[in-house]
Design a protein around this nucleic acid. Structure first.
Lengths: 265, 265
DNA sequence: GGGTATTTGTCCGTATGTATT
DNA sequence: AAATACATACGGACAAATACC
């Protein structure tokens, strides 16, 4: 009896879940029933359920019960796309291609002082101003990613006025910059990290506030034909519904989205 | 008073941590002290600390106390390397280049029946046999990743006998296959997911068993000059000490590892 | 090694609040 | 309004891990 009782209870339930005895979406016995079944106090049963919650296996709904989590059908984004295309356009294309419905919110534009990370990445002097363009993205109505692009303020001054327009740029900001300023995006570097969501992100993605579900944070720095960084785009994706693909060298087309276990809705 | 008391206590402590009032590695007040400071019961104080633990801000050590977590200096792996080089060689090069010390355990070789995922990815019929080569990797003595490569059993039969040797192949398995069978790796596809670690992984990486710290799982399918998959490599990396970079098109060299906040030891 | 104090971990019982049906 | 089920909060008891003498 090495393990504490709440772990044994948790393991028992876990086995039922992983063996399929309890299907995704199905309700677990109530705390009272578990208390009797395992001859434990209600608090001990609750500890077991908290453990399973931290593992992401179950979720509780006050007034209803405890349920086996249904996995969200993940969306797979290919990071190694055309080096000359903007992120918004890529999102629309990739999502549509898989028969799902993309939606991008109107762009929220601000002029900000660059913070340390973005300023350094863009190669701007301390305290420079940047144009920030923020968007929320959805797939099939589900909140999917939060994206903010930063452009040097100088670009807008040099003639790319529409960068300051609080509206989607039809052909994408990258294409627009190519047409107005001759700035061609010839490559980018993505820096991928995983962290706990902040309160705003948890709220938007409807994630639990306690940080159980982490988010990807992808910093994309894009370069023009002179090797100068022309934008930094920071996109945040919940890890419970996003996966990524990178293709290097010659790789045949994948056979479609690996839908691990699409447990539908 | 919208928030429950344990959240208020947690927020108070959180502010002290994020403002720097409590430094990484520093000990928090004991449960007894917090109980008096906030006029709450010990269990309520413990709920507050559990909340902070889930957020990854503190850790508890039985018999000692509760401490602000010290972040591990992350290692950044570039996924978009030379399309013709194997993963083991890349690991050695990249880690050494940043002045850190790589170590790869001896290879553990097994012949297995391919599971559904690997078999499909390699394009093998149901139930085919594969050679599995497993390695543990460390950086500066810290467990860093678990890697398993799968090769079609046929390759060993066709003359690549050393695939079955339980030992590191000096120049890397990929180079070895090129020399013996003329199989050149010309590209690969990485599929990046994040999930909770299983018990074995949590144990090896010294992660908490409750799944607070997630792991990256990267499926790399590598292709030979005929477009045929020649290997599948699955690597697991804890998200608390790993980040990734992908470079597409023309991107200048990064200025070195972004050492977010290297909070030393 | 032993003994003791400190600190967190587990487990119990109970009461009351809040969300949902 | 009533019943059900989870959420919060309190108090107490003992166990286990650690540090120190």
């Amino acid at each position: 009896m090495a393990n504490p009782m709440y772990r044994q209870i948790a393991d028992g339930l876990r086995e039922q879940i992983e063996s399929g005895g309890l299907q995704p979406g199905e309700q677990l016995p109530t705390e009272l029933e578990l208390r009797e079944r395992y001859s434990a106090s209600r608090n001990t049963v609750r500890d077991a359920i908290k453990w399973l919650m931290n593992l992401g296996l179950v979720e509780t709904r006050p007034g209803q019960g405890t349920f086996v989590v249904k996995k969200i059908a993940p969306f797979v984004t290919t990071l190694s796309g055309d080096p000359g295309t903007g992120d918004g356009v890529i999102f629309q294309i990739q999502v549509s291609k898989h028969g799902r419905t993309p939606y991008s919110s109107p762009v929220q534009v601000e002029i900000q002082k660059a913070n340390a990370g973005v300023g350094a990445e863009l190669g701007l002097p301390e305290g420079s101003q940047v144009v920030s363009r923020h968007q929320k993205r959805f797939i099939d109505g589900t909140p999917w990613s939060l994206q903010t692009s930063f452009y040097p303020r100088g670009l807008a001054v040099q003639g790319a006025d529409d960068l300051l327009l609080a509206d989607n740029i039809e052909k994408g900001a990258v294409q627009y910059l190519a047409e107005t300023l001759g700035l061609k995006q010839v490559g980018y570097r993505d820096w991928i990290t995983v962290r706990a969501p902040d309160a705003t992100e948890a709220d938007f993605f409807k994630l639990p506030q306690d940080g159980r579900v982490a988010v990807f944070e992808i910093f994309r720095t894009a370069f023009d034909q002179t090797g100068t960084p022309m934008r930094v785009t920071v996109t945040v994706f919940p890890t419970d519904r996003n996966q990524f693909i990178v293709e290097i060298g010659d790789a045949p087309e994948p056979r479609g989205q690996q839908s691990t276990e699409d447990q539908g809705s």
